[in-house]
């Protein structure tokens, strides 16, 4: 059994009378890359702030790397790297100065500091601007400096709040690759409202909406859980009536919609979850002598699931 790195139990957070987190519970084990997904204002940042010891929760408990975030806040902060939303930095400092400052705060041994700076500079592609003032850097560069800061202490757990926000497409791709690589050494909890990002980088997804966890599983599981997951598209040429009634009578088929396309019948077949009738449809077409030019399964992606589950709330 892998070691539990993050353990969240019934976490609730009020801002005044506003309920930001409502009874959130989840666990993350060592070396998992978990995506914390939700629309804006769902409580992602609040959760990360509680886990990093920046804000206390109203009730509930949370442990990071075996320490309680409230009563052992300092020990927790020694084990983590945190990239807050928008990567706040000191614009007047140079990148190297900033990293030295942060390394000092994180109590990294004096002899190791320059080695660690070299490592994170390499890792986050910052070689060409490591001596420039932070105020002169582009958004993407700053984001990388923030990530480098999170990494500098070689933390057990990394919290990344919207790590790719404000980056251009190339940088987004590079950052995702970096996160996937880092996932081999660190436990990562990253928040995002971009689905493709989470699908691409995370081994597990926790979806939050309005302060609640509404789903938790691998991206694949979550897609499969969608009830319309097994929808078939078939294009058949033949008499309309018999085709519809024939397909409808197949076991597991719930609904058939048709449309016409240059002489072909385009069927959209909805089935019960987990039922695949492709073979039967092909057999039926062959038996009756209909022509069949397309037969495929339309797999719902995480996006469909996300939209559905958020809309349900």
């Amino acid at each position: 059994m892998a070691e539990t790195m993050i353990k969240v139990r019934n976490l609730t957070k009020y801002y005044g009378s506003l309920l930001a987190l409502n009874d959130v519970s989840f666990e993350v084990t060592r070396s998992e890359v978990v995506g914390f997904l939700g629309p804006n204002g769902a409580g992602k940042t609040t959760t990360l702030r509680i886990l990093t010891g920046y804000q206390p929760a109203s009730s509930g408990s949370a442990q990071v790397a075996g320490f309680d975030v409230f009563s052992q806040s300092k020990q927790v902060r020694e084990q983590i790297g945190y990239l807050p939303e928008n990567a706040p930095l000191y614009p007047e400092m140079r990148v190297r100065e900033y990293l030295q400052f942060r390394a000092g705060l994180k109590n990294i041994a004096r002899g190791v500091i320059s080695k660690r700076i070299e490592y994170v500079t390499e890792r986050c592609w910052m070689k060409e601007f490591v001596n420039r003032p932070i105020g002169h850097l582009s958004k993407g560069m700053r984001q990388r400096v923030g990530l480098a800061d999170a990494l500098i202490g070689d933390p057990k757990v990394l919290f990344l709040d919207e790590p790719t926000i404000g980056l251009d497409p190339t940088q987004i791709r590079e950052t995702r690759n970096l996160i996937s690589e880092l996932g081999q050494q660190h436990t990562i909890l990253l928040s995002s409202h971009i689905l493709s990002e989470v699908e691409a980088t995370c081994s597990r997804v926790i979806i939050v909406a309005r302060g609640r966890v509404v789903a938790d599983g691998t991206p694949h599981d979550l897609s499969a859980r969608l009830s319309e997951a097994s929808r078939l598209i078939a294009e058949v040429k033949g008499p309309e009536g018999p085709i519809i009634s024939g397909v409808k009578n197949l076991p597991g088929v719930k609904q058939v919609e048709t449309s016409h396309e240059d002489g072909w019948q385009r069927l959209r077949i909805a089935t019960a979850p987990g039922v695949d009738v492709r073979e039967q449809v092909a057999k039926l077409a062959a038996d009756r002598g209909w022509n069949l030019r397309e037969l495929r399964r339309e797999v719902a992606n995480l996006e469909d699931y996300f939209v559905k589950i958020v809309a349900e709330q």
Partner: peptide, 14 residues
């Protein structure tokens, strides 16, 4: 104002 308080207070300093 700049939000750096968040990185400062989540570093292991009192």
């Amino acid at each position: 104002r700049s939000g750096t308080i968040e990185t400062l207070m989540t570093a292991p300093v009192s």
